[in-house]
């Protein structure tokens, strides 16, 4: 007997819940709900992207916030130049992220384990300090965006609910893309290289090319999250790429269960909700949050998704 819905069912339920959420917000007359949920969805995209390389590729990037920042600054810089189209913002963000990921990934992937973690962190810190020193865009303080990106010339995303649905559509699309990738030929090589790189070489694969490609895909997906996050907050600063934030992304992935794409979405959701709720309860909320994380990791090595899995 299977008590557990298959992954497709779980995904359908979760995304349907997100889709009806704005109606709930109207019913409760709580417009803040849509705002926080938009934020959650942006982070869900980033966590999903990170899980692709962390969970499936075994690459623990501790600098993924850099890509959030790259996406966000793409919006800020292009907007100031008078280019407001969301599609162009996306293109610029993806291109910049691809270049950054290609260069830093090619170097980082020469190392393993703790060194990989440290070197990705170092590159993200370099990006952070680059934008801190960028005084034209407010340096440390960042810049406020006067308007959100436009869609086909329309200012439709100024509406919080419209923005929310735009992020949701992106999340669902990227989730389906990520699932397809993990099940593809490429995904098999990526996972195999995590399991046993020497074995993969001995059957004729060079893991590096596949790992680097995955690293770039993940960076680009995270930059998309950054574009939407900048629109959601209407504010861009180097804090987007702070190393705390890279750590939070790793926590979300671990929370949801490493190597479980839907878990990453759930992990981002629950981590941010906990943060909201615990912050109301006490100003010492990080302590409580840490405790919960420890318990989840101790009792379910597969994170939250493991709690729902059939015991064998």
């Amino acid at each position: 007997m299977r008590l557990i819905p298959t992954r497709a069912w779980a995904a359908t339920i979760l995304f349907t819940a997100f889709a009806v959420l704005p109606f709930l917000a109207v019913a409760l007359d709580d417009s803040y709900l849509v705002v926080i949920a938009s934020r959650i969805l942006c982070y869900a995209i980033a966590a999903l992207a990170l899980d692709l390389i962390l969970g499936y590729g075994g690459m623990v990037s501790f600098g993924h916030a850099a890509y959030l920042g790259i996406g966000a600054y793409a919006v800020a810089i292009l907007s100031r130049a008078g280019i407001t189209d969301l599609g162009l913002h996306m293109l610029a963000a993806i291109a910049a992220a691809a270049v950054f990921a290609l260069v830093t990934g090619a170097i980082s992937l020469r190392t393993r384990g703790i060194y990989f973690i440290m070197i990705t962190l170092a590159f993200a810190q370099m990006a952070y300090f680059f934008f801190v020193s960028l005084s034209a865009y407010g340096g440390d303080d960042g810049v406020t965006l006067n308007a959100r990106s436009t869609l086909f010339g329309q200012t439709i995303l100024e509406d919080d609910t419209a923005l929310y649905y735009a992020v949701l559509v992106l999340l669902i699309g990227l989730y389906l893309l990520a699932v397809a990738i993990t099940r593809s030929r490429f995904g098999r090589v990526l996972t195999g290289a995590r399991e046993n790189p020497v074995r993969m070489q001995a059957i004729g694969f060079s893991p590096f090319r596949y790992q680097l490609t995955a690293f770039v895909i993940s960076g680009c997906m995270t930059a998309i999250a950054g574009v939407m996050l900048a629109n959601q907050t209407s504010y861009v600063s180097p804090a987007f790429m702070n190393w705390h934030r890279s750590g939070e992304l790793v926590v979300m992935v671990v929370f949801g269960g490493i190597g479980n794409l839907l878990g990453a979405v759930a992990g981002a959701t629950i981590a941010l909700l906990l943060e909201e709720w615990l912050a109301v309860l006490t100003k010492h909320w990080p302590l409580l949050f840490g405790l919960i994380l420890v318990l989840v990791v101790l009792y379910s090595r597969d994170g939250l998704s493991g709690l729902f899995r059939r015991r064998r």
């Binding site: 099940r183 030929r185 993969m200």
Partner: peptide, 24 residues
């Protein structure tokens, strides 16, 4: 899957991202 990976390595590109490999 262990053996199929070895077959995969010599039959065509593995830079294929969309179709499920388990169904090949």
């Amino acid at each position: 899957e262990n053996v199929a990976s070895a077959v995969q390595a010599r039959s065509g590109s593995s830079f294929r991202f969309f179709s499920p490999v388990a169904e090949e």
